[in-house]
Nucleic acid binder design. Structure first.
Length: 973
RNA sequence: GCGGAUGUGGUGAAAUUGGUAGACACGCCAGACUUAGGAUCUGGUGCCGAGAGGUGUGCGGGUUCGAGUCCCUCCAUCCGCACCA
């Protein structure tokens, strides 16, 4: 009886679907286990063999856990909002909902063919109103929350209002408003607060909300017509489409993820993720310790400033914040300085406060808000030209050109807080507006960039550290090591760098010119997108103030529009919606949420997907908790994975979920690369030369569809039919008349004709073969090339397994006592598989099955017990064939996953003798079979008298004998 | 520049605590069978060598009775960050 995989797989697919075999419910009597895959964005291209790699691994693990008696949650859904569907809609006019629906159907069909044990009754789609209702609900919660630095968690905005009403802006203690995440707020008393009108109050509250509308420099991509978050910009261009991106000052919805910077960093220590992802997140958060120091502006500079300068400032639109100058009464309270007037000063962040006496200039970023407030008339033209140039340079140009030193003097000075010396203020684009305060205190003697800048503009260097390396020449290069003794530094003289840093912070704080501070590279995440196909932001405007919708007004449905393009006035597509107004005719917010909104919490919705009154039921989340195993790509390190952690921490703070981290363990599957095939076209002719002769001709390699190539041999007839221009192609072949193709390993893509879809392989070999082969390819985490050739080996293995049950064409197994050697093969495999699965080594598991089946075939084993146990072991890898065998063995149809995973019995592997490898000086020379119960002395005696030992000793005396019983014998000569 | 990962036959890889390097497959070679199938089965296959044997896990050193595995130096490839003050 043949292994009819097509018929078997179709039968079980139907059975599982009809009987809802994989549906799970909460069961307090069982321990839960939550296995999650990163849900796909349903693109028009469908799945290729690389996509299901992680899904197969998680499916194997889910089935393994089920067999071990766990109640396993293993859901799947679609991240169905996103740019490609919208771009397609713009081109074709088709509604993105429609194409998304079609793509999902295709994905589902492809996924079903592979035999996953997903509980499809829990499917979620981020673009369905039932789902995004709750994404909007979470947004409103973020909008109605602030981060209390005192309690170190998110709280309802009402608690902040309460504080303002009782204590004013100073809060219950002086640290209240200095969480370093708010914008500057003018101080006010409790009485002043109460007398402010609502609009003003709301404006102030906006500086504290976790989802807020704020003005900041954002990544504007004009090609996509939208702003992008930092993680969506790669090397200065958009991640999607590779379009240029520029810095632009805009009013945007943002997420105050910076409030969680420290907790996001600390949380990494408690989760079992790959070191590389954790490092990437640590890098991205970019914590650095140092000090914030204020350099007061010299009065003379301010006095010189004329109206001309003010005009330039306005023209350039570089002063977004209403910054006051000295003399105005309502100046902002700059963070960190208690009650001091620090408004007319430049704040810098430095990690080296020890070098404070080495400061010889201060540099501002070209976009710094003070630039046009401090520039002297004499320098105005130069500064304007420089700032204009910097402004018009794209991020990419700026990044590509980091070695060119450029800058300009403003004409103004700040005062050194200790020496009171005037220090010139420069502008340089090596200072980034988005990091720290956008201003640095330049210490050329001890910082490389400052050194280069100073040398270029001939600014003096002032050495304040004696290098520990005496050969270092401070004239040639900056001494940047944190080693050496302080000099030329007043009260810091003689201290080590480490001591000086602490001491400097103490003195800076005493003098009230600054304080110790931790700075993060992490920026708040821009949340609004000027696009159509996303969740509408549930906000309306009354008197220009944004208000959140009430929960009972959700979902705010995505309205229909005539075109998916911006309006003529440059407003987002949602402005095209007719009669789309909140009650009282209030305008809705017109931007939509970014792609990562829906995916930041989808793992919670699976727990309770149909709940219409809560985003997830309390009892459900109490039972299922967070994800035990998450499998997905590492490309989401600074996007999805960071945002999901952020939202989870927020939901935890607000008491909605009982855990702070969404994903306890994560494995990142490696990319599967394609294996492209090439033919070699002789230039100027319609003639192709085979691989081995290509160097004898002037030819170019051309990608050829891999379906026309088998084992690197080209099907020349099919090739001629492939494209009309090749119909008359000629070939220069190998001696045997075949045409050999060259190959290269590259990413799979349509344009390279190297895409392998799972569908065709399921068709040819069956899903069980595909599943096992994808695992057999190598370690899950590793990047590896796809090579279809090897799949036949796995397919033969399954046939061989099938044959164990089918002697002489019929199904038959023996009920006799199993042989000792069969039991040995079985238990060896049980041990190996358990060990392999527990360390997620899926590839070695497949090899173990092959070894076991090879051995049992050699033994002509047809024992029911042994084969049934083997069948359970193989069930996670090859669910269809094992389910079929399970039924044939007389078990209830479809009950395989209710079986008990075999347990290892060490006594089955006990041997009476062992083949010792005998080594001389560590080199194995021969083997010697000795009883297991021999003592070390007996082993040594038996070894030394052996004739092979005598031969290898060549008459010399052994110096030493290392004997590890049951392992090895090593004779040292 | 900083950080992370990887490096083993013609190919994918295995070797889990330092203990027989190359399991298991693909490919290749030789053979058996024949309903000529992408079937099944047998044997061989790291490299050099006729053989005995030598040699071999990116390079070079070290620790050890013994190193793919531990330590140091260097090289290569991939990934992330990158004028981060």
């Amino acid at each position: 009886m043949e292994y009819e995989f097509k018929q078997i797989e179709a039968k079980w697919r139907a059975f599982w679907a009809i009987n809802e075999t994989f549906k799970v419910t909460e069961d307090p009597s069982k321990q839960k286990f939550y296995v999650l895959d990163m849900f796909p964005y349903p693109s028009g291209a469908g799945l290729h063999v690389g996509h299901p790699l992680g899904y197969i691994a998680s499916d194997i693990f889910s089935r393994y856990k089920k067999l071990e008696g766990f109640n396993v949650l293993h859901p799947m859904g679609y991240d169905s909002f996103g740019l490609p569907a919208e771009q397609y809609a713009i081109q074709t006019g088709q509604h993105p909902a429609l194409t998304t629906e079609q793509n999902i159907a295709r994905y589902r069909d492809q996924l079903d063919k592979i035999g996953f044990c997903y509980d499809w009754s829990r499917e979620v789609r981020t673009s369905s109103p039932e789902y995004y209702k709750w994404t909007q609900w979470i947004f409103i919660n973020l909008f109605n929350s602030w981060y209390n630095p005192e309690s170190n968690k998110a709280e309802d905005i009402q608690s902040l209002i309460g504080i303002f009403e009782q204590h004013g802006s100073q809060g219950v203690n002086l640290e209240m408003l200095t969480g370093d995440i708010e914008k500057n707020v003018a101080p006010f008393t409790a009485d002043q607060w109460k007398n402010l009108d609502q609009k003003k109050q709301l404006e102030i509250l906006m500086n504290f909300r976790l989802a807020y509308l704020g003005e900041s420099f954002v990544n504007w991509c004009s090609a996509l017509g939208t702003v992008l978050a930092n993680d969506e910009v790669v090397n200065g261009v958009s991640e999607r489409g590779g379009h240029p991106v520029e810095r632009k000052l805009m009013k945007q919805w943002s997420m105050r993820i910076t409030a969680y910077a420290q907790r996001l960093l600390d949380g990494l220590d408690g989760i079992d993720w790959s070191e590389s992802i954790k490092e990437t997140q640590r890098n991205w958060i970019g914590r650095s310790e140092g000090a914030s120091i204020f350099f007061p502006l010299c009065l003379s500079a301010e006095e010189e400033r004329g109206t001309e300068v003010e005009e330039k400032r306005d023209e350039n639109n570089f002063t977004p914040l209403n910054l006051p100058s000295r003399g105005e009464t309502n100046f902002p309270l700059r963070r960190g300085i208690e009650g001091e007037d620090t408004s007319a000063s430049i704040e810098v962040f430095t990690t080296r406060p020890d070098t404070i006496f080495g400061v010889s200039f201060v540099t501002l970023a070209p976009e710094h808000e003070l630039v046009f407030k401090i520039t002297t008339p004499a320098q105005l033209d130069a500064v304007t030209t420089y700032v204009e140039k910097a402004k018009n340079r794209s991020e990419r140009e700026r990044q590509a050109d980091v070695n060119t030193i450029s800058g300009v003097f403003t004409g103004s000075y700040v005062e050194h807080p200790f020496t009171k010396e005037p220090i010139p203020i420069w502008i340089g684009d090596y200072v980034l507006v988005g990091y720290g305060t956008g201003a640095v205190m330049a210490v050329p003697a001890h910082d490389e960039r400052d050194f280069k800048f100073a040398k270029h503009f001939d600014i003096p260097c002032r050495q304040v550290i004696l290098p520990s390396n005496e050969s270092h020449d401070i004239e040639i290069a900056a001494w940047t090591e944190k080693e050496g003794k302080l000099m030329n530094s007043d009260f810091l003289n003689g201290l080590t760098v480490k001591e000086a840093i602490s001491k400097a912070i103490v003195e800076i704080t005493n003098l009230k010119v600054g304080k110790g501070r931790v700075n993060y590279r992490l920026r708040d995440a821009v949340f609004g997108r000027q696009r159509y196909w996303g969740e509408p932001i549930p906000i309306f405007y009354n008197n220009d103030s944004p208000f959140a919708l009430e929960e009972n007004e959700l979902p705010l449905n995505l309205p229909e529009v005539d075109k998916y393009l911006p309006t003529e006035d440059g407003e987002p597509p949602l402005a095209r919606a007719e009669d789309w107004k909140h009650k009282n005719n209030y305008e809705y917010e017109l931007s939509t949420m970014p792609g990562w909104a829906g995916s930041s919490w989808y793992f919670l919705r699976y727990l309770d997907p149909q709940n219409s009154t809560e985003f997830v039921g309390k009892d459900k989340v109490e039972y299922w908790q967070n994800v035990d195993l998450y499998i997905g790509g590492s490309e989401h390190a600074t996007g999805h994975l960071l945002y999901a952690r952020f939202w989870t921490k927020f939901l935890f703070d607000r008491g909605y979920v009982p855990f702070e981290e969404p994903f306890k363990k994560m494995i990142n599957q490696g990319m599967i690369l394609g294996r492209s095939s090439f033919v070699y076209l002789v230039i100027g002719e319609n003639k192709f030369v085979t691989y081995s002769l290509k160097d004898q001709h002037n030819c170019v390699p051309i990608h050829v569809d891999i379906s026309l190539v088998d084992n690197d041999k080209l099907d020349m007839v099919a090739f001629r039919k492939w494209r009309p221009e090749y119909a008359d192609a000629a070939f220069i072949c190998e001696d045997d008349g075949t045409y050999t193709c060259g190959f290269e390993v590259e990413k799979m893509s349509k344009s390279k004709y190297n895409v392998q879809t799972p569908d065709e392989l399921v068709e040819k070999f069956g899903a069980d073969t595909l599943r096992m082969y994808e695992m057999f390819l190598g370690p899950l985490e590793q990047t590896k090339p796809w090579d279809t050739k090897g799949i036949t080996g796995v397919h033969s293995f399954l046939k061989k397994y099938w044959r164990l049950f089918h002697a002489n064409g019929t199904f038959q197994v023996s009920d006799a006592e199993p042989s000792k050697e069969a039991m040995k093969s079985l238990h060896k495999t049980i041990k190996k598989l358990r060990d392999d699965l527990d360390r997620f080594s899926f590839n070695t598991g497949v090899s173990s099955f092959m070894i076991c089946v090879n051995e049992l075939s050699d033994q002509k084993c047809s024992n029911r017990y042994v084969l049934e146990q083997l069948t359970i072991l193989m069930a996670p890898y090859a669910p269809h064939i094992t389910e079929e065998i399970w039924e044939k063995l007389g078990n209830e149809a479809g009950s395989l996953l209710n079986a008990t995973y075999p347990t290892f019995d060490a006594s089955q592997l006990v041997e009476s003798s062992y083949d010792y490898p005998v080594s001389f000086n560590g080199k194995m020379r021969f083997k010697l079979n000795l009883p297991m119960d021999f003592s070390v002395q007996q082993i040594q005696d038996a070894t030394l008298v052996h004739h092979d030992t005598v031969k290898w000793l060549e008459g010399k005396e052994p110096k030493k004998c290392i004997i590890v019983p049951g392992k090895i014998i090593n004779i040292v000569i």
